[in-house]
């Protein structure tokens, strides 16, 4: 009696082992493998923003309840997402980014339909309110000097005023209002000539000492919370 009971339990154990090892294959999907990547551009020119602050959403319909796959652009305006093959809709929600994303007549963000079949690169065209043109950043005598001109891109009824221009300097390559060791700001009222803006900061002492910094120029637009930036540069002091 006792031994037969033992027998049964071993048998059960064996069966469950089989089930467990076999179950992995049968029940599960392969992980998503298609990479969708790209950047936000204006007429092919990259638009730089602050990392983790400007978000986008991808929707896929046909699977019951609808919720977005959300992500944020990095500093260079690059996004990337690993997805299953299929049809997706891409939007940038209203109020995100220092640019205008196309909208439907009702004011909702319009979508871009993306058909994913394997890896894909797709740049997203946006219209920034302003652009920083010909940024020149130089370093010397422990100072960083930046010059640039500001071009207003959107001039129609939805044009917005310039609020301020800032030069940010940081030890690492994350450079923004939140990540900097020193900054200089010029408010719009103090900008005499938008074609010739000059900013300068004195680089403070860094621990541990390093002989280079990263810098970029950020532009604040009135009523828009995300700044638009010039490309990141590394400067030797």
């Amino acid at each position: 009696m006792q031994s037969r009971y033992h027998h049964t339990s071993y048998f059960l154990l064996l069966i469950s082992c089989f089930l467990l090892s076999g179950g992995c294959k049968k029940d599960n999907y392969d992980p998503p493998a298609a990479q969708l990547t790209g950047r936000i551009v204006y007429n092919g020119e990259p638009v730089n923003v602050e990392y983790n602050q400007v978000s986008y959403q991808l929707y896929q319909f046909g699977f019951g309840k609808v919720g977005p796959i959300e992500g944020t652009f990095n500093q260079e305006g690059v996004y990337s997402q690993v997805l299953f093959n299929g049809e997706y809709k891409f939007i940038i929600p209203n109020g995100q980014g220092p640019f205008r994303w196309k909208q439907t007549g009702a004011g909702a963000p319009d979508s871009v339909t993306i058909n994913i079949q394997g890896n894909q690169t797709l740049d997203m065209e946006v219209t920034p309110y302003y652009l920083i043109r010909s940024p020149q950043l130089t370093a010397g005598n422990n100072k960083v000097t930046a010059t640039c001109s500001i071009e207003q891109i959107i001039t129609d009824a939805s044009a917005r005023d310039l609020e301020s221009v800032s030069l940010y300097v940081n030890k690492t390559q994350f450079v923004s209002g939140a990540d900097n060791i020193e900054s200089a700001t010029l408010s719009a009222a103090d900008i005499a000539d938008p074609d010739n803006v000059t900013l300068q900061v004195t680089v403070p002492a860094m621990t541990p000492a390093q002989d280079y910094v990263y810098a970029r120029i950020g532009l604040k637009i009135a009523g828009v919370e995300d700044r638009i930036f010039s490309p990141l540069v590394r400067l030797d002091l």
Partner: peptide
């Protein structure tokens, strides 16, 4: 709120 906590250092 967005002016007081504006995210600048």
């Amino acid at each position: 709120a967005h002016r007081v906590w504006d995210g600048a250092q």
